[in-house]
Design a protein around this nucleic acid. Sequence first.
DNA 1: CGAAACTCCTGAGCGC
DNA 2: TGCGCTCAGGAGTTTC
Length: 278
Amino acid sequence: MPELPEVETVRLSIQKNLIGSVITAIDIHQRKLRQKIPLNFKQKLLKQKIFAVHRRGKYLLISTSYGIIIIHLGMSGRLLVKDITPKRTKHEHVTMTLSNGKLLSLIDPRRFGLVLWIKTLNHPVLKKLGKEPLTKDFSHDYLYNAAQKRKITIKQLIMDNRIVAGIGNIYASEALFAAKIYPLTPANKLNSKQCQILVTKIKSILKSAIKNRGTTFRDYVDGSGMSGNFQKYLKVYGRENQPCKSCRTKLQNIKIGQRNTIYCLKCQNQGNESQPSL
DNA sequence: CGAAACTCCTGAGCGC
DNA sequence: TGCGCTCAGGAGTTTC
């Protein structure tokens, strides 16, 4: 499930093949994704040149000479740059032929992904997004202030893309473990120090995951089909009933907002007065 | 307004 | 071997 580090890894792996290329053909085999791919998608983008590939949260932004392609990989999405082959693979919903002889291909079995053409960055999908976690704007003051007004759990807060963009279930779970914060803690019960530690851990974990080219748990691969490495460093995600890497206590699983949340009962103290150490 | 429940979708994994 | 069931979950929508 691609979160910020996986999307960034895809971006880095596809950008060299895209920049400077012209889109010479577009084939849409399945329009029904999270939103329907508009009928004018092809007409807008045909013969346009690609200038840059950016990322915002979990969204990829491909800038062309006329507008921008927004791609979200949802749960099971893959965006591959590959050689042109005669037959299309299963669940290959959109392909774009490039002037350099490559094919940009979106494969998404569960169809939770998104492909849109937008004229400018001033679009509702992007405007709703919160802070970019690896920028200075995402500070402990910002998180603390955002948390003060909210009764939801801290895990739900950091997974809310309107607050901070790009953190999903894997990295939220890992960051809370690293910060020694109990995932069910109400957001407004966190003190300033805990926010500071949490922000620091979110940044360091995301950076480390990008360095390791993301987490391959099930489906995820980068733009060239290569798996990530960060799964080797996961401390809680996917480790229900296994011993905590820090204290050997059996890790617990709870549902928070319908999502599995693995945590250590001992390391992630339930008391607000706990003073997590760095 | 916030919060929680519900919705979309398909492959994998399971028991029988 | 294959059927039927459950689960995974990002983000939009609905309900209260």
